[in-house]
Design a protein around this nucleic acid. Structure first.
Length: 551
RNA sequence: GGACGCGUGGCCUAGCAUGGAUAGGGCACCAGCCUUCUAAGCUGGGAAUCCCGGGUUCAAAUCCCGGCGCGUCCGCCA
């Protein structure tokens, strides 16, 4: 049982003890830890709720779990015993037991899967950051997670890119492949809009690639591979790790085979094949096409194939997707249910990061690239460090950490489905609710421990200061937070929690001197700092924030 | 036009699933705090029709109905 649950269950037991069948809710901090509002009882008991609360408190037996049970107006309030809580939290955290969850099932989590036609841009940067944190959180929660990236090399976009590289004049541009080759994609996209002949040529190229033309395949693999390498490098720079890249073009044979499995649901028109969605009971669109008239497969069919492929690895699949994929995903779920009823497929949707002047678009060149954002962040952080007189190597190292943490946190600290308008000052915020703020509290803890020399002992009965108690209460919620984030597929829950924890520690730092304290109090406070640091270590890993002993 | 999501101080954001106690934070702004564990911190201050209108309820930011605004989708693109 989770720590908070132990106390909650006891509070509920006490309620039943006095004949109340309801359950406690979380109280506002100033009133205690749990609360039971007596309004609903007022009618059946024909009494004033304040009076009821008072009477219930009188009747209620004592409990070692609570230092106080009182009524504040019409509420029954339970105050957790600090000593008892501190004992559990310190024991669980220092031993590492709090970080251990029971083993759960295997998951294939797919994220990013950006078209390999150019560099990652900030409009889509929520995807890797959210996906990566989600994977880490699910692993902590006990899942065995494999992270996939679906390389969309089989469709029109990549064909457009390849045509561009083949046919447009060569320009010598220095830099990473993704940044260089995207120019061809942008130009080719523009030409398609002007000249439909080019569109025809691109479709032919796409068909040859899909039908297995060796020369084109070799060319495509080389060019797409090079862009993908650039994307991978960008991801690694912000500590996002992908376990497995699956190339869409490799799945075409499987896609064709799967299409055969639901042949009786498929209709044909002009040589193109589709499923009538009304028959499937899906609203929002009439048909979903599987094959083009020219016999090539469409993304939807290949994506079905990909999910079937993933189901060989796990029966629980999670896709981190932009909101533009909502309908696609709903249809996908319906089809997959027919093909494999045991397969569970969930999506974590996020809204786009827009620019003040509109949606970001690689094709139109209206973008802020992730690489540029990171570079800008590193410059800003290093500037600050230089001004503070840090030595060269530390300026470099800490500057990078600060920038990565700031960027990752600014993305994670917003509820996934909220739309975001990109602003440099928000993305690279180093103060307040930010990555560096969290890093800083960790650094402060390190700083105390460097000088503290904890002897390994602690005394829960010495935990008395309100700020010590607040910090410990925050720590007690860890297990619930991890569970909630895992169940709701929402890393931002962990992000908020981590900020709140750092915030509590900063106040503890102000109110509760550690090194200057003496005897058992000193050892106990050192134990709290050790436990805090351990927990922050874990939380920051989950979010992908960097840790630094000095900053 | 239909479906889905979002709408909270100047700006950003929490709370909404499971309705309850003066709607939490942050940025920016103003005023303070470094001979004391690193001030990327802390304290205080001003600033909010919780999009609008109805309804349910002892009680609505939260639930229901109807609007409005923004975003996304409704392609033989992905």
């Amino acid at each position: 049982m989770y720590i908070v649950e132990i106390f909650r269950a006891e509070a509920n037991r006490l309620l039943r003890e006095v004949g109340i069948e309801g359950e406690v809710t979380e109280a506002k901090e100033e009133f205690g830890d749990f609360a039971y509002p007596c309004f609903p009882l007022a009618e059946e008991m024909k009494m004033n709720p304040v009076e009821i609360a008072r009477k219930m408190v009188e009747k209620m037996p004592e409990s070692k779990f609570f230092s106080e049970i009182k009524n504040t107006g019409p509420y029954i309030n339970f105050v957790i015993s600090p000593e008892r809580l501190a004992k559990l939290v310190l024991e669980y955290t220092l031993s590492g037991k709090i970080f251990q969850f029971e083993k759960k099932e295997k998951i294939v989590l797919e994220h990013t899967s950006a078209n390999p036609t150019g560099p990652l841009h900030v409009g889509r940067a929520r995807n890797p950051v959210i996906g990566d944190a989600m994977a880490r959180i699910l692993r902590r929660y006990g899942h065995d997670v494999v992270v996939h990236y679906f390389v969309n090399d089989a469709g029109m976009q990549v064909a457009t890119l390849l045509w561009g590289i083949k046919n447009l004049p060569y320009e010598k541009i220095e830099g990473k492949c993704d940044h260089v080759l995207v120019k061809y994609y942008q130009k080719a996209s523009k030409l398609v809009e002007e000249d439909e002949n080019i569109g025809k040529k691109i479709r032919n190229l796409m068909k040859s690639y899909e039908m297995g033309d060796e020369e084109i395949r070799k060319f495509a693999r080389e060019k797409v591979g090079c862009i993908l390498k650039g994307i991978k490098e960008s991801l690694e720079k912000i500590d996002v790790h992908i376990d497995k890249f699956v190339w869409e073009s490799d799945l075409v044979p499987l896609a064709r085979e799967i299409a055969g499995r639901f042949r009786d649901m498929v209709d044909e028109e002009d040589g193109a094949y589709y499923i009538d969605l009304k028959k499937l009971g899906v609203e929002g669109k009439d048909r979903i096409y599987l094959y083009r008239r020219d016999g090539t497969t469409l993304y939807f069919l290949r994506d079905v194939a990909y999910h079937i492929k993933k189901s060989e690895e796990a029966q629980y699949l999670i896709d981190v997707l932009g909101e533009d994929h909502k309908l696609h995903f709903r249809i996908l779920q319906n089809i997959l249910k027919i093909l494999n009823e045991h397969l569970r497929v969930r999506a974590l949707f996020y809204s786009f990061v827009r620019l003040p002047e509109g949606k970001m678009s690689t094709r139109h060149g209206r973008v802020v690239y992730l690489d540029d954002l990171l570079e800008e962040g590193i410059n800003k952080a290093q500037e600050i460090l230089k001004n503070r007189g840090y030595p060269e190597n530390e300026v470099k190292e800490i500057g990078k950490s600060v920038a990565i943490s700031a960027i990752r946190y600014s993305i994670l600290n917003i509820q996934e489905e909220k739309p975001v308008v990109f602003q440099w000052q928000n993305a690279l915020n180093f103060e307040g609710e930010s990555g560096p703020f969290i890093m800083y509290s960790y650094t402060r803890a390190s700083s105390i421990l460097r000088k503290g020399n904890w002897n390994g002992e602690y005394y829960p009965e010495f935990v008395k200061h309100p700020q010590e108690i607040k910090l410990i209460k925050m720590m007690a919620r860890y297990q619930d937070v991890i569970q909630e984030a895992s169940k709701n597929l929402s890393p931002y829950i962990v992000a908020r929690y981590t900020y709140n924890m750092a915030n509590q520690f900063n106040q503890f730092y102000r109110d509760c001197p550690v090194i200057k304290s003496e005897g058992r109090l000193r050892e106990t406070r050192l134990a709290i700092v050790v436990a805090f640091k351990k927990m922050m270590d874990d939380l920051m890993d989950l979010l992908g924030l960097k840790k630094s002993e000095k900053m």
